[in-house]
């Protein structure tokens, strides 16, 4: 049954979806769905997902979707785009898939200015496997592999968009958004997609997200961690405005 609250491209039969209660993925995917509706590209879009929690989006939309191995979503999407360049190709991954095992592929795609859109949902840990540290885990943050808090001294949580600014062409659109402001998430996703459609260039949006299950926090504490810690370290906004736009 189609609910009035659903984006048109939602696959109704898979709702309620399998993401945990309070998971930021639900918010990001909803905004992605509205963006696809608005740009009217439902039949022209390819969506690639990873095997972390993003895996649960494999049957989320009535959009051609491919789930693949951890960290290999970007190469698949790049390959697909190279073969079918009229399609709008999106890689939807977590911070583990983007910045650990998939980091090499991410940097390579940006160096080549692959005209794909990469959406990274950053919750500062590995969600699906139970909450281990990730390259984005913050100083002192508790995870199952940093039970005493992640070491601060000498260790840097990765700043993905900032790194890509140095490896991308000036035509790339690179931004960071936060699920505490959902409409802005939608705006950034739309801008990113337009950079692929209109400017045929690389686009990347990291979205700061919450993970109440693995953080072991309720709604209030989750928003506190997101807004008081994550948004302080990970700067929200446009990191690289595409020179074409």
């Amino acid at each position: 049954m189609r609910l009035s609250s659903f984006p048109i491209c939602f696959k109704e039969i898979t709702k309620p979806h399998k993401f945990c209660p309070g998971c930021g993925h639900g918010i990001v995917l909803k905004e992605l769905g509205f963006a696809v509706d608005e740009l009217d590209i439902i039949n022209d879009t390819l969506l690639g997902v990873d095997i972390g929690c993003s895996l649960l989006a494999w049957d989320f939309f009535n959009i051609a979707t491919i789930q693949t191995h951890h960290g290999r979503t970007i190469p698949i999407v790049s390959g697909y785009k190279s073969a079918q360049n009229k399609k709008i190709c999106i890689a939807y991954v977590g911070d583990g898939g983007a910045y650990a095992i998939g980091l090499q592929a991410l940097i390579t795609a940006s160096l080549r200015n692959d005209p794909i859109t990469i959406i990274v949902v950053n919750n500062t840990l590995y969600g699906m496997t139970g909450g281990q540290m990730a390259p984005t885990t913050l100083c002192n943050e508790l995870t199952t592999t940093t039970p005493n808090g992640k070491i601060c001294e000498g260790i840097k949580p990765i700043l993905g968009p900032e790194l890509l600014k140095n490896t991308s062409s000036e035509k790339a659109f690179i931004a960071r958004a936060t699920i505490s402001r959902p409409l802005e998430v939608g705006e950034m996703i739309k801008k990113a997609l337009l950079n692929q459609i209109v400017n045929n260039s690389f686009s990347f949006v990291e979205i700061l997200s919450i993970c109440p299950t693995n953080w072991k926090k309720d709604a209030k504490e989750s928003f506190e961690f997101l807004e008081k810690y994550m948004e302080k370290y990970f700067t929200v906004g446009v990191i690289n405005e595409s020179k074409n736009s």
Binding site: L3, S4, S5, F6, F10, K15, P16, H17, F19, G22, C23, G24, H25, G26, I27, K30, I179, P182, L183
Partner: peptide, 11 residues
């Protein structure tokens, strides 16, 4: 509330 809901449970 409608915007923040991860499950489209409010309209």
């Amino acid at each position: 509330c409608e915007n923040i809901c991860p499950d489209c449970a409010i309209k």
